[in-house]
Every structure is written in C-alpha cells, then in structure tokens.
Nucleic acid binder design. Structure first.
Lengths: 131, 131
DNA sequence: TCCATATTTCTAGTATAATGGACATATTAA
DNA sequence: TTAATATGTCCATTATACTAGAAATATGGA
C-alpha cells in the first residue's frame, strides 16, 4: 500500500452511495451481491449504481464476476486490511497506536486511549487514560 | 464515528496535497507545524495550502492555533483512532479482523492474513495463513 | 505610525465528479 | 429467433473541487 493507492481508496469511499454499497458488500461477505440487488437496496438507478460500482472496482476495493445474467460484486477484504495497516503505520503510530506481527503473521494493533499531553512513545503507562 | 463523519474524513484524505500535509502533521506530532512550513515543504502556494488546510480543518482531522504571526496546525490523533476503529468494526470485522477492548480501555485489533476461501469466524486456525 | 511577515479570503477560470435518460450488450428461456 | 432480464455504455447536464492571482486581515517590531 503506497500513498497513491491509499488516495484512490479514500476517494472511492468518500461518496455516500459508494460507501453504503461497500458496507453492504462487506456484510454480504465473500459471496457478494449482484449489481441489481445493490441498486434496489440503495434505491439508486441501475446506471448510476453501475457508475459507482465501476469506481469501486477501479480502486480495486471490490471485484466482480459474472453469474448467469447477473454480475456479482464482492468486497476485497485483503485490501481493506492493507489500508488499515497503512493508516496505523503512517497516520498515528508515534502517538498512540502500535502495530506488530505475531509468529503466525497476524497483525496486532493496539490503539490506546488518547494521550492528552505527551506522545505515548510506544510504552503504556505514559498515557493518562482519558479519552 | 458515523457514516457521514467517515465520508468527510475519507474525502479530506483523498487528495494528494491534503494527504501529504496530514502525514507531515502526523510526523510533527502534537506540536504541529505552521501553515507556511507546510506550504514550503510541499511546494504549494500559500493560498492553495490554506484552502486545503481549511478542508482538513472542516473535517476535524487537524486543528489549529495562532502563535504570534503563525497559525500552527496539528493532527487530530484521536479522530484517526476512531476512524480506524470504525473501519475495523464496519468494514472487515466478519472476515478477518477482530477488535476488543482490554481492561485499560486499549483497543486490541487483530488482522489475520487473508483467508482465501472461508470467513475466519473470529477464531484463528481456520485461516490457511497465506497472504 | 509604518512596514514586513504570516496567513486567510475573494474571485474567476478550469477541471473533475455525479446524475439519469436513452441505447447497447449479454444471458437465458420460451 | 424472439422476448425478457440484468447490466453496462454513451451522453449531456449540473454540481462540486482545485488552482492561483490579487486583495484583505492580523501580528509584531522599528
């Protein structure tokens, strides 16, 4: 995940219809949903929906496959995971978030309560715990 | 953090000058940086910089204070933390991320490696570990 | 007070995004 | 092969975003 890629994803998620569609796809899981179902649930004309699905697709945050007459969209979960890692590493690691990998390759992120005065410096105990 | 607030933040971070400015402010920590320093480091005219800083400020992801002739901007770290929590809870919790709070109020997020076929169902061991 | 510095606001030009009607394409079944 | 369904593409309109010159505001110092 580099800066340019993250900009494209932020842009994809910065529009109401697209964010709502993406969240529906997330809740639908790996099976995904056909374009028509999204258009109907979100009460958006099918061509407008198609425009936004294409936008999400270009950002690589959803993928699609044809199944009969339908085109099924599904969320690209690994990319979301990468985006979250990018945000933690690049956007708040110094102040109150830490990220490490355990022996199984699972990323463990700790978000402390906000430190009102001083940076946390990677150790807890320096935060006052207030939010 | 609700949907509308997250859209505004995604929008704020979806533009190159703004994301670069935000990342500079993150690396500057709580002390922040004056508008002129950002304008100079990013080689962006001061009025254009001001436009983008205002955008970030409206999204509440940075704040500002006057110090003498300078206006110092700094990153709003707690909001980033909230955004990350929103993304984990709303965008991938079912599939391969979990979030919980420990006794000190620290959020512990686990991002597994991607599960190629089936949902992880909150337990590890069901993932094949490949990325 | 007068000037230099730091930043914002105003403004207009240009570019990009969103919307939805009309039409085109792909698939399936009769 | 004709019709119905599902979706995408084309296009014009409207709205919003980005950019930077010029002017305005705020501060601190000579």
């Amino acid at each position: 995940m580099d800066t340019q890629e993250s900009i494209i994803i932020f842009d994809a998620l910065s529009q109401e219809t697209r964010l709502r569609a993406f969240r529906l796809l997330v809740s639908a899981g790996k099976d995904g949903l056909p374009a028509g179902a999204l258009s109907e649930k979100l009460r958006v004309p099918h061509n407008t929906m198609s425009f936004h699905l294409n936008h999400l697709s270009n950002a690589n945050i959803v993928s699609s496959r044809r199944e009969g007459r339908s085109i099924i969209y599904s969320a690209n979960f690994p990319l979301v995971r990468d985006l979250i890692r990018f945000m933690v590493r690049d956007c708040c690691s110094v102040e109150f978030a830490s990220i490490r990998e355990d022996e199984k390759g699972v990323s463990i992120i700790e978000l402390t309560s906000s430190c009102s005065d001083k940076p946390c410096e990677s150790k807890k105990g320096k935060c006052d715990g207030t939010s």
